[in-house]
Design a protein around this nucleic acid. Sequence first.
DNA 1: AACGTTAATGTAACGATGTTAACTTAACGC
DNA 2: GCGTTAAGTTAACATCGTTACATTAACGTT
Lengths: 223, 223
Amino acid sequence: MTESDIAVKVGSRETETAILEAARNLLAEGGLNALSMRAVASQVGLSATAIYHWFEGKEDLVDRVVQHGFQRSEAYMWKAIEDLPAGSMERVAALGEAYIRFALENREYFKIIFAIQTPTPRHIDDVPGKGGYRVLRQCVIEAMDAGNIRRTDPDMVVLFLWSVVHGLVTIFMACDPKEMLAETGCCDDMDEQELTIGLFARFRDLVRVGLEPGEGTEGGRDA
Amino acid sequence: MTESDIAVKVGSRETETAILEAARNLLAEGGLNALSMRAVASQVGLSATAIYHWFEGKEDLVDRVVQHGFQRSEAYMWKAIEDLPAGSMERVAALGEAYIRFALENREYFKIIFAIQTPTPRHIDDVPGKGGYRVLRQCVIEAMDAGNIRRTDPDMVVLFLWSVVHGLVTIFMACDPKEMLAETGCCDDMDEQELTIGLFARFRDLVRVGLEPGEGTEGGRDA
DNA sequence: AACGTTAATGTAACGATGTTAACTTAACGC
DNA sequence: GCGTTAAGTTAACATCGTTACATTAACGTT
């Protein structure tokens, strides 16, 4: 058994990942339309129908691409908070920022998951929530224990926070932020990500006050 | 000139709207994939290529369908608040509910606008914001004048509120709400819309406190 | 009344897409 | 050595959006 034989055998396993990688690149560059079976196949050096030996069809292929993409979200989130003190609101805020950055860097995945044709409303087990939800939930609970968030159903708070950042980010994926905030004038000389995160920073005051425990809410901390 | 001649002539103008209506129905029933030129044409009783005399292509057709769909959103929103006192927080809350209902009743439009392939990031002038934004903005300003919302940049508050409801609704379009809140146990025997609006109602406390002007925030109003 | 123009539609066809069927190879286990 | 299976090919089909070209009818002008 020569080395090339081994290479062939191992290579067969790698074919699957090569297909996935090619599909991922095409998706990132040209969106879903650019991800065609034939384009993927030609990038891998196969015929289009060979893909069907590794994936059930295009839907399955796209599913796996997106799934793999979102599996990185949990690590991405952990990394965003590792240097911040547990139980602090800074952690919660950092997670929001991380979600926004992740979404803007992987917007094709988001478009697919959060909108596109799900003819069968399939098993969505790894929407970025699955990874991110756990992280955020833990941070919220720790912040409750530390007395920085008033005690309520943590899932409700998590879903609320998730809604805020997810809504902001998807709105800006559809509408041009600069066009939308033209009169507000807070937008020039920033790229999209800076702008979105900047807006999120201004949301944080509204959110924080809403989550604060008992009394001591001196209003107007914003202007 | 006989009556049938007139019918033909008037009918030609109506052809355009008949195409739009057929496209709208196909979209609502089977999503974007079901909206094919040939399917639309056969429902109207034309050949597929005849559509190109009224629309530049499929993208244009879909654009017009979605545009028409969202044009109703402004009226939908106005209707939701007409019986509520101006300047009240009830109006703001009612707008949130209306947005959720509208989104769930027109989710195909939302999927297209907020996600799908915009190879050219085209002039999004009538995202539901364009209509809904104005209404919400006015209500927020009135609520500020009435002293129910602390004075800040109203556009920031509007965008914040919009993000909350839009995020909630798009998250639930992607993930099955019941699956997601399985442990929370607040979900049985409700349909999706009831559940989403119910969650929104629980968000309202968090939002309201965050928007309240000065002092007087007695916390823990929720449990 | 005849003519050119334009609006509104139809037919045929092209290229690209996702997918299936059937065939080929090569490697492995017994 | 032989069947089985994995991995891949070619050919083909139906469908899609779209274009080129022909047709038909109505209208305005002379």
